[in-house]
Design a protein around this nucleic acid. Structure first.
Length: 903
RNA sequence: GCCCGCUUAGCUCAGUGGUAGAGCACACGCUUCACACGCGUGGGGUCGUAGGUUCAAGUCCUACAGCGGGCACCA
């Protein structure tokens, strides 16, 4: 059979995904067992404008490992795929495209513009989903969704109307975050607070009716003073007691404003007197509400000063106005001082423009009521279960406890239009359709609200809308809701996770997911966040796929601490080592296939295990132990532990030991039943290992599995009978506890130690690899002696010994021997006439004795401690006793060896 | 300001109260008939600091230091 020496991932990647997709392997319908349990995941829908980054690759790997694992366990598995219309992002992308043609969206008009966006989506929107095919993601394409699909839009309107009818959604004039660049309102979660160095200006406002007296206010935004309608002080502040109720002359405007007392003012900060601009600051807005202060809008939606700011300032940019205000105060002698100050600035998280708080008429959602059920569940039942639980359960709970109303409306064109219509008098009719609104209004001429909804409004419905809600009879909703797990990043716990909880509990009942896995970040090699906007050594997953292969990338990500929630750096060396692992798998399989004549998967391990050779009992024990460990790890979302087990089993146990131990039998030139059996065993272990590895490395495992002798339609999990043979629909190996054999493992450890010690001696004495040695073993007739005897052919081969002899004791071994004492009382000698440097050998043994003596000393000290013996568990004490006994024995043996050296 | 996380080998990171681990890097030796993306052997750690609990602490508790993150209406 012609198999190249080096694995080339490309060919397997190109071939198998298309085949799986064509054969319908990804759909839950592949499973013919109607009574099979269900497993479902919905993907956090990537933005339709997006392209794959490492964060996606990480999350998708985890979701795919879970989906493939549970699918192989025979569950009816659904992984829902789709994309998000991503309101602002998408609108910006298309506007940018228009700009190249010298057009703005206003040139096109709303309808044409939206057509243009759909066109763009048709043309370029599939990029990220194409990339997901490359990743190997086993999502069900037949159920692919887009948040602007008709049925999902219907769900959005249903959600809006029902909440409006219950008073949870309302329209009102409130202070909101406004992005002057994107020209839209934003929710609190779409705003980043950033500390920034700036100044604190101390401005003096003269007191009316007094020539000298002034009140000094401190502000980071002097330009807003043009809209001041009061100055507030703390009611208990002694400095200002006599001024409460007094009137100030607001400079530059000639307006008179009152001094009010409000507990929100911190007397310790600044001067203890706060200028109040209700129209442009959230705190001031609340103070204004409490004291019935007028709101004077001095900054407009473009962050320019309005007419109300005064003729001198009208039209100026907010920062120009700031300078001018400061300058004027200085000229008037009313600028007391300027202090350096580090304060928080809010920025639009999309375009980084400084947010302008503005009073504006918008739609809001009362989240507090919606969150009640979710709060109850997390507090009383710790549901959903966050992984890792610390710190996310607390972060999530704290957030739900401190909810503010959610600003829903966006002044954009791309998105779900708000289902509200107005008649000519301005009355509002919220309805599921324009027709319903007309009926409600009793009028024909209605105008729909021009605004659209926050993108996250439709995302909040994702787990239920993709499964068919509000169609209560939807089979998918009944079958696949609630989902099993949500895998996502911490940034969207509030934006998305909490809101899905609200909609799921409100409209369906149960939480939309049982577990929430929060991944860590994949940072660049310097520990910086990979970012497109900020400088970083961001790594493109597609490049990594190209260079190292998809499987190597996936298993690297699964092994990364980021898969279990800890941020960690991306390192090419890591993926390189897993690329090497893929190649190791390839070559192990290559060896098996080159020697596969007469072999058959599933054979070779017949009869009672007690009749098997030690290495066969041992490898089955390790294999089943690995299967147990991997299942435990995957089910507990400890992916790096699963990878560690698989890597260690495959490379160390299977390749380095089992194949080497069995090689002679497998490569025997005579085609005997014994050879066939040995070949079958090695291929059986390989096949099981490939199934264990498949969720992590789908392509190479499929590529190799297809070539194994004796696999086919019958190899599939019973639930998938009738499907095309593929490793992805076989049964995920279940640990057979009866094959986990502690004794075989311990005996094999002894053989490994023996071999390792002889190799160590060979290396230390510079024996050429090609040169054969003689080996003398003393291990008693029972126990270890029998074990070594039974494995003699293997031992001879592995240490390159021409001859191995068993002796009662080492006493009559040649003086010129290198010696070692093993655990369990075994001793060995390797005679080297003329090669032994007695001084060197004495030193080597001396060093060994010293090392063991130190350990013995420590153990004995512990055993001599009556409190330890009394209080520690008896088995622990016994364990230490045995260990110290073994070490003592070895020291005695080594000392005798030293004696023997003296001759 | 409040809350949280991290600190273990040269690097990146695992680690469940009971013998400190992996990968990479490093050193030495290998064209050993699956694999040099490999094989064999080896060196390398007072587990951030100081206390405490415990028979026993890298692991639990307290404080501190350094780094990172989240939340917050102190102008």
């Amino acid at each position: 059979m012609e198999i190249p020496k080096t694995y080339d991932p490309r060919q397997a990647e190109e071939q198998h995904y298309a085949r799986w997709e064509r054969a319908g392997c990804f759909a839950p319908e592949a499973n013919r067992d109607e009574s099979a349990p269900v497993y479902s995941i919905v993907i956090p829908p990537p933005n339709v404008t997006g392209s794959l980054h490492m964060g996606h690759a990480l999350q998708h790997t985890i979701m795919d490992v879970l989906a493939r694992y549970h699918r192989m366990r025979g569950k009816r598995t659904l992984w829902v795929i789709g994309t998000d219309h991503a309101g602002i992002s998408t609108q910006i992308v298309v506007e940018r495209e228009l700009k190249k043609e010298g057009l703005s969206r206003h040139d096109l008009g709303r309808e044409k513009f939206i057509e243009r966006v759909w066109e763009w989506k048709q043309r370029s929107g599939g990029r990220i989903t194409e990339q997901m095919r490359r990743e190997g993601a086993s999502v069900d394409w037949s159920r692919e969704r887009f948040t602007m699909d008709d049925d999902l839009s219907r769900a959005v309107r249903e959600f809006f109307v029902r909440c409006h009818d219950e008073g949870l959604i309302y329209r009102g004039e409130r202070l909101i975050n406004w992005c002057p660049k994107d020209q839209t309102a934003l929710s609190d979660l779409e705003v980043d607070k950033e500390t920034q160095k700036g100044q604190l200006w101390h401005l003096q406002y003269p007191v009316k009716g007094s020539d000298e007296r002034r009140v000094t206010v401190a502000t980071t935004r002097p330009e807003t003073m043009l809209g001041d309608t009061a100055v507030a002080v703390n009611p208990d502040d002694e400095r200002y007691q006599d001024l409460i109720g007094a009137t100030l002359m607001l400079p530059l405007t000639g307006r008179e404003i009152p001094i009010v007392a409000d507990a929100a003012v911190d007397p310790a900060f600044g001067t203890g007197a706060v200028k109040v601009t209700p129209a442009h600051d959230p705190t001031d807005y609340e103070i204004g509400e409490r004291h019935n202060l007028p709101q004077i809008v001095v900054i407009d939606k473009h962050a320019r000063m309005t007419e109300a700011a005064g003729a001198e300032f009208a039209g100026l940019d907010r920062y120009e106005a700031r300078e001018k205000v400061v300058q004027k105060f200085e000229e008037l002698g009313l600028l007391e001082r300027v202090a350096d100050y580090e304060g928080a600035v809010s920025r639009c998280d999309r375009c980084r423009t400084v947010i302008e708080p503005l009073i504006s008429l918008q739609w809001f959602c009362k989240q507090r009521e919606l969150a009640e059920k979710g709060l109850e569940l997390i507090r009383e039942r710790h549901e959903p279960h966050f992984v890792p639980e610390v710190p996310w359960e607390k972060v999530y709970t704290d957030w739900l406890e401190g909810l503010h109303d959610w600003t829903l409306s966006r002044q954009l064109w791309w998105g779900h239009r708000i289902p509200a219509w107005y008649d000519e008098e301005g009355n509002v009719y919220v309805a599921r359709s324009e027709e319903d609104a007309r009926v409600a209004a009793g009028a024909d001429k209605l105008t729909q609200d021009p605004d659209v909804l926050d993108t996250w409004f439709s995302s909040a419905l994702w787990p239920i809308s993709t499964l068919g809600w509000p169609e209560e009879t939807s089979a998918d909703l009944k079958t696949f809701y609630p989902t099993d797990v949500l895998v996502t990043a911490r940034e969207i716990i509030f934006l998305w996770v909490s809101r899905m909880v609200m909609t799921g509990t409100k409209f369906i009942g149960p939480l939309p997911f049982r577990d929430v896995v929060i991944t860590g970040l994949v940072l660049d090699k310097h520990g910086k966040k990979m970012s497109k906007s900020k400088p970083s050594d961001a790594v493109d997953p597609m490049d990594v796929f190209e260079k190292y292969g998809v499987d190597a990338t996936r298993i690297t990500l699964a092994s990364s601490p980021a898969s279990t929630g800890t941020d960690s750096r991306w390192r090419d060396e890591q993926v390189e080592s897993y690329r090497n692992f893929a190649n190791k798998i390839w070559n192990a399989a290559r060896f098996c296939l080159m020697n596969s004549e007469g072999a058959q998967v599933g054979k070779g391990f017949e009869g009672d295990p007690s009749g098997w050779a030690l290495h066969d009992r041992w490898i089955m024990s390790e294999l089943n132990r690995t299967a147990r460990e991997v299942s435990r790890a995957v089910e507990g979302y400890q992916f790096h532990e699963a990878v560690y087990s698989l890597y260690h089993f495959f490379w160390d146990d299977f390749c380095d030991w089992y194949i080497e131990l069995t090689k002679q039998d497998v490569t025997a030139s005579e085609p005997t039943p014994a050879r066939d059996a040995a070949r079958s065993r090695v291929v059986t272990v390989l096949e099981t290992a490939l199934r264990l590895l498949h969720p992590f490395m789908p392509f190479i495992t499929e590529e190799l599995w297809q070539r194994l002798p004796g696999v086919g339609a019958d190899s599939l999990h019973p639930a998938y009978r009738g499907m095309e043979p593929t490793v992805m629909l076989t049964e995920y190996p279940r640990a057979d506890e009866s094959l986990i054999d502690e004794r075989a493992e311990s005996e094999m450890r002894a053989v490994i130690e023996l071999v390792s010690r002889v190799r160590n001696i060979r290396t230390e004495l510079n024996v050429k690899p090609s040169e054969e040695v003689r080996l003398i073993i003393s291990a008693g007739g029972d126990g270890l002696g029998r074990v070594f005897d039974a494995s003699l052919p293997q031992i001879k081969r592995l240490v390159r010994a021409s001859e191995v002899s068993f002796k009662e004791s080492m006493a009559d071994a040649p003086r010129a021997s290198a010696r070692a004492a093993l655990a369990g009382g075994a001793e060995l000698a390797v005679p080297f006439e003329g090669l032994i440097d007695f001084g060197q050998e004495t030193a080597r043994l001396g060093k060994e004795i010293e090392k063991l003596s130190k350990e013995l000393e420590r153990l004995e000290a512990q055993l001599a401690n009556p409190q330890f013996v009394e209080r520690a568990p008896a088995e622990k004490v016994e364990e230490l006793r045995q260990r110290s006994e073994d070490i003592r024995q070895r020291i005695v043996a080594l000392e005798q060896m030293l004696e023997a050296l003296k001759g």
